[in-house]
Design a protein around this nucleic acid. Structure first.
Length: 293
DNA sequence: ATGTCGCCTACGAGGCGA
């Protein structure tokens, strides 16, 4: 096969947006979509609509918060939920929608959240990640965010140490604006999360293991998120917080990228839009072939 | 404008998270 189109999109509830998501995948010829904030458990996911469009879905979700999924029309293998030493947060609070038996705990006894799922497609290791928001500087959730990112980095580093030539992509809602130009007005973010130096350092740390923001590297400008409030989209007061970080072997496959700004328009949009990369899978296959001249 | 969403509990309006 030749081109392969891969995307990430924080859908902000798949149950309220399945038709819109599937329509876009077909219209934009997407092979694999990493979704975040599906906000449902497995039995609630609208699988039928994806299957009817030719996509299989792997997902990880607990009740109404968070939740991640990967939809693909190419075979998915080696599906993994979470990553080694992923931290949890908060307290176990059983409800009708989430009984005590639904909680899994981390090594410290904190409940794990549904923020990471990975699958291998065409030999490419693809992850859908929903980085914790952080809420406020100094909030326990902010420490959780930084710790979660540090453990994710450890995990990616271990993977790339063992398999340096692996095409690996960490895709999702990072809840970090790495550069000042990634928000519409730095003055509005003084003392806020998403732009603080520790968060930006945690993001940049992925560069030290060779991971690149392949969409920025492709020269694609623009925001990926606009708050529902305060006419943020009409005013184009957005944030760039959704990213695809690729290992060197992944970056070599990239032939193009775009941000689907139009998906913020129309009826009942998510507050995020899809971020898309095109891959030349033949490039990888060619690399594996012996040179004959 | 604390300005909008989406889902929860529990049946209506308030809470939470983003």
């Amino acid at each position: 096969m030749g081109g392969m189109r891969v995307a990430t999109w924080n859908v902000n509830s798949i149950r309220s947006r399945a038709a819109r998501v599937v329509d876009w995948m077909l219209r934009d010829d997407v092979d694999v979509l990493a979704m975040q904030e599906i906000k449902c458990k497995p039995e609630q996911f609208p699988l039928d609509q994806f299957h009817a469009a030719g996509y299989e879905v792997e997902l990880h979700g607990f009740s109404q918060w968070n939740g991640v999924a990967i939809a693909s029309r190419l075979p998915m293998e080696n599906v993994r939920v979470g990553f080694p030493h992923m931290p949890g947060f908060g307290v176990v609070k059983p409800t009708a929608a989430m009984p005590a038996s639904a909680f899994a705990l981390d090594e410290s006894g904190l409940p794990l959240e549904a923020r990471a799922i990975g699958a291998t497609v065409n030999g490419i290791d693809l992850w859908s990640l929903y980085v914790p928001n952080g809420r406020e500087l100094g909030d326990p959730h902010y420490d959780y965010k930084l710790n979660w990112l540090a453990r994710l980095l450890d995990s990616a580093q271990e993977t790339l140490s063992a398999t340096p030539d692996l095409p690996l992509a960490l895709m999702g809602d990072w809840n970090i604006a790495p550069l000042d130009e990634d928000v519409w007005d730095m003055g509005a973010f003084q003392g806020s999360t998403h732009v603080s130096e520790p968060e930006r350092a945690a993001f940049r740390a992925f560069e030290t293991i060779g991971m690149r923001d392949v969409v920025r590297d492709a020269g694609v400008p623009g925001y990926t998120y606009w708050d529902y409030k305060q006419l943020r989209f009409p005013r184009n007061e957005g944030m760039r917080i959704d990213f695809i970080l690729g290992s060197p072997a992944f970056a070599r496959l990239v032939t193009g990228a775009h941000i689907e700004r139009n998906e913020r328009k129309g009826d009942a949009p998510s507050d995020h839009v899809p971020v898309v990369v095109d891959l030349d899978v033949e490039t990888e296959l060619d690399d594996d072939r012996p040179m004959i001249f």
